[in-house]
Design a protein around this nucleic acid. Structure first.
Length: 845
RNA sequence: GGGCCCGUGGUCUAGGUGGUAAUGACGUCGCCUUUACGAGGCGAAGGUCAUGCGUUCGAAUCGCAUCGGGCCCA
């Protein structure tokens, strides 16, 4: 058999994409003898773009899934899609050139669904092309009725358990999106702002000191909302005004001066005004001092009636006008330019407001979550503290209601007559209360007239259920079909505070169990310039681009080798090229092997059955097999610890250095059958056996990483009619370690390398024969045949007498070389092409 | 301001529970058209493991401090 010279990834990958059947990866729930291994696969947001970061993450998952299957686990690798949410709404508005208010909610949702379906199909193409072994029979889509039903069920359950409640409370609010958002949806940005020094008149003028108190603020438009003023208790400057009252300029309300440790005396004048609400600190103070609520900004970011003459203005316009008016009245002392860190909506970057409205909340039990986080194994471990810090910094409960459209409706109505809350009955789920009515009258007053809850749920309410959904958790029976906790949650570190956090919270709330035993965090992909990939930086690379040029296996190899699992990976084309070179190297190895193994009939010589003749293997062959055993052990160990880079590196260095550089050169001549004779036949058979076993094992070890190539390789080595995929095969077990063969083989390899170096240093072609090589082995028994073959030179072993070697060297003009670390020396006799003296490198005497 | 991670040859990176001469890739240089591979082969050069102090018989590895970078959060 003669393979093509060049490896053609597109041809091979296309072939197997067509040949493989999805059912290979189907989870079999009735499998008796196999342990389940269930993966809580991330459901990506269907943007239509399966980007390189996704691809990295899915490669990791696939390495594990394929490896575990080969290890004999019944692996479930489902795929979900997290459909709901704002980005799709915005995209639909953009695409159609409409606003969501212009058409009915039903129509708008239909458009969102349509876009999402298209995007999902687009992303699936890339996932398949990458060779990700997803179980497509277990696909779930959060906008489907079945999943919406599940989400609403979970809502009802938590409501009944008192874990969900409605309350009037300040929430983060995006005035542009006109919805409440969770802390997790707030980002922070540095912006330029003016710090305005305003004068507040003292109400108790007789108390001494000046008439006015100077207060610095970046948000003068909140003056109508000012409910108090605070100073630091140790601040000597303001001793006399503590507990007294000030009059708010322009608006005239009298506010008390509180003393509070949280005031920063260094900022501004050391006096801070407390408004409802400027920031989170205001909320804290408001609660702590039981202050009144003065709402001056409405849900669309406009000033309310409380702002008097400023009513109806935007916050920015109001700010300008108030400053102008303050200046006119001589109450504006000065303005300073400062950098300010403002909270903005993650989606539209509009500065958020904190507005008190009636919303739905999920109770957050911090201690329970912190305890659970400790029960979960984190890879790498330090990411657990990310979650812990986040949990500790949460100040109020999780706001789960959104004033949006494309999401799961909150399954609730209110009685028109008595106002009582009416929950949907479980049998009717999924429901949209804006479309249908509850099946029964109001339980308080018997009325059948209802007002629907218009709010929908935060999308994290859907996606935080993926582990339970995957495990087949039943809310009614409190049991799971496939076992909870599931085995593995793979995800990025960017969503620890959201997806990981909410998943743990809800699993505990709904099942009293942790969602998964292990969480594996993958890094982000950085651009070639070392920065996070982003369109504005113009440093993005798509997986398509890599695959088109080099194939999916190369991309996957890059993913494995990019760096330690969990750390960010810098994308570099050089690494892609390096990976594709390795593919060619493997192909060349296979090509060489197939010249000698095409008709090979495998017999397990090492097992030594009665039926099989026991063949004594040559030293170099035993050396190779022993090294192979070590490789299997180390790769297995690396896989168990998710160290894909380590695994792939050891495979690579074995294939390249041990197998290709050393072994093939040593065994080549035996394989070609040079010399003939009976001994030669045995040598050839021994080499064929070792080569075959090594390649077959290599194809198994490579299968999780480069599934296409591994399949191609495996198919040549098992050309039986009932061919079964390498991905259905068993993971190899390490064979025996043969210390003696290793020692001797290492020495042989080192000798060959020394001879090569000698030739290289003297400008002698590698295949040119030298006159003679004499070896002093230092006691190790050594066979010379393979060395002769690999060096094209006659070899003689002068067993024990080192002095004899010296005298021969003098006599014959030989060059002596120490074989580093092996206590052996060789002498090279080469009269014809000897190089200059004193330039032979450190080994020369 | 707080938390976490990191700083290893020109570039990127492994190692990190302390122990002989620190891993690999890319790049560089020299040689070789050897029947598996010229997008190759063989060989070579190149590192005060950020800086300082400390623990130790011994530190890239542990501790402290400083400088620099990144991420998350306030």
């Amino acid at each position: 058999m003669q393979l093509e010279k060049k490896y053609k990834p597109q041809k091979v990958e296309q072939k197997w994409l067509e040949a493989w059947d999805d059912s290979m990866y189907y989870f079999n729930p009735s499998s008796q003898d196999k342990k389940p291994f269930i993966i809580d696969t991330p459901p990506p947001y269907p943007t239509g773009d399966f980007h390189i970061g996704n691809a990295l993450n899915w490669c990791y998952i696939d390495f594990i899934a394929r490896y575990k299957r080969m290890r004999g686990y019944e692996v479930m690798f489902p795929q979900g899609w997290d459909c709901h949410g704002l980005p799709t709404e915005v995209k639909v508005e953009e695409e159609r050139g409409i606003s969501r208010h212009q058409i009915s909610k039903q129509e708008f949702r239909a458009l969102c669904k349509e876009l999402t379906t298209r995007n999902i199909e687009q992303m699936k193409v890339m996932m398949r092309r990458l060779g990700i072994s997803i179980d497509w029979s277990r696909e779930y889509i959060t906008m489907d009725d079945s999943y919406r039903r599940y989400t609403q069920q979970s809502f009802l359950k938590m409501y009944h358990d008192g874990l969900i409640y409605q309350a009037e409370h300040p929430v983060n609010w995006c005035p542009r999106c006109e919805t409440a958002i969770a802390f997790a949806e707030v980002e922070y940005e540095d912006r330029d702002a003016f710090l305005n020094y305003l004068l507040f008149r003292r109400v108790d003028k007789d108390a001494g000191g000046g008439e006015y108190v100077e207060i610095a603020t970046t948000r003068p438009e909140l003056l109508p909302s000012c409910v108090a003023v605070a100073v630091h208790p140790d601040d000597e400057r303001y001793r006399d005004i503590a507990g007294k009252e000030l009059e708010v300029p322009l608006f005239g309300q009298h506010v008390r001066v509180y003393e509070d440790e949280a005031v920063d005396p260094e900022f501004g004048t050391g006096v801070v005004m407390i408004c409802t609400f400027g920031d989170r600190q205001d909320v804290r103070w408001w609660k702590q001092h039981n202050l009144p609520l003065r709402v001056s900004i409405d849900e669309r970011g406009r000033m309310t009636a409380l702002a008097g003459v400023y009513e109806g203005l935007s916050t920015e316009e109001c700010r300008r006008r108030i400053i102008a008016d303050m200046a006119d009245k001589g109450l504006l002392k000065k303005r300073e330019r400062i950098k300010q860190n403002v909270g903005v909506c993650w989606r539209c970057k509009t500065p958020i407001e904190i507005i008190s409205t009636r919303q739905w909340f999920v109770r957050v039990n911090k201690d329970e979550i912190l305890t659970a986080a400790k029960e979960i194994r984190w890879y790498p471990p330090h990411f657990r503290s990310r979650l812990e810090n986040w949990v500790q910094s949460m100040e109020w409960d999780w706001c789960i209601s959104r004033q949006r459209i494309f999401s799961v409706p909150i399954p609730v109505w209110y009685c028109k007559r008595c106002g009582a809350l009416k929950l949907a009955s479980e049998a009717d789920l999924p429901v949209d209360p804006t479309v249908s009515n509850p099946g029964s009258p109001c339980s308080s007053c018997g009325s059948t007239e209802f007002e629907p809850e218009e709010d929908v749920l935060d999308t994290w309410m859907d996606s935080s259920l993926t582990a339970l959904w995957t495990a087949g958790w039943d809310f009614r029976t409190g049991t799971s079909r496939f076992g909870l906790p599931v085995e593995l949650r793979p995800q990025g570190h960017d969503i620890i505070r959201t997806w990981a956090f909410y998943s743990i919270l809800r699993s505990l709330a709904l099942t009293h169990r942790i969602p998964w035993r292990t969480i594996l965090i993958n890094g982000m992909v950085l651009g070639e310039d070392g920065y996070k990939m982003s369109k504005s930086r113009n440093n993005t690379v798509s997986p398509e681009e890599v695959i088109q040029k080099h194939g999916a296996d190369v991309f996957r190899q890059w993913a494995a080798m990019g760096g330690a699992t969990g750390s960010d990976v810098q994308f570099r084309w050089k690494d892609i090229i390096a990976a594709s070179k390795f593919m060619q190297k493997l192909w060349s190895i296979l090509r060489f092997a197939m010249i000698h193994l095409a008709d090979y009939d495998y017999r397990d010589y090492e097992a030594g059955n009665e039926d099989e003749p026991k063949l004594e293997l040559e030293v170099v062959d035993r050396w190779l097999l022993s090294k192979l055993s070590r490789l299997v052990s180390s790769v297995t160990d690396s896989m168990e610890h998710f160290q894909f880079d380590e695994a792939m590196k050891s495979i690579r260095s074995f294939a390249w250095y041990v197998l290709a550089d050393d072994y093939i050169e040593l065994a080549k001549s035996r394989l070609y059958g040079h010399g003939g004779g009976e001994g030669m036949d045995r040598g050839k058979e021994s080499a064929r056996y070792a080569l075959y076993r090594t390649l077959k094992t290599l194809s198994l070890l490579l299968a999780p990483f480069i599934p296409f190539f591994a399949e191609e390789m495996y198919s040549y080595l098992s050309p039986s009619p009932g061919y079964e995929s390498v991905h259905m095969a068993e993971w190899p077990l390490p064979g025996r370690i043969d210390i003696n063969a290793e020692e001797e083989g290492d020495l042989i390899a080192a000798i060959v390398r020394a001879v090569r170096r000698y030739k290289s240093e003297h400008g002698i072609p590698l295949n040119a024969p030298l006159d003679k090589i004499i070896i002093f082995t230092g006691g190790i028994r050594i066979s010379v045949q393979d060395i002769e073959n690999a060096t094209a030179t006659e070899v003689e072993v002068k067993g024990e007498d080192v002095d004899a070697l010296d005298s021969i060297a003098n006599e014959e003009g030989g060059v002596l070389i120490d074989i580093k670390g092996r206590g052996a020396r060789i002498m090279i006799i080469n009269r014809t092409t000897r190089g200059g003296e004193g330039e032979d490198g450190e080994g020369k005497r």
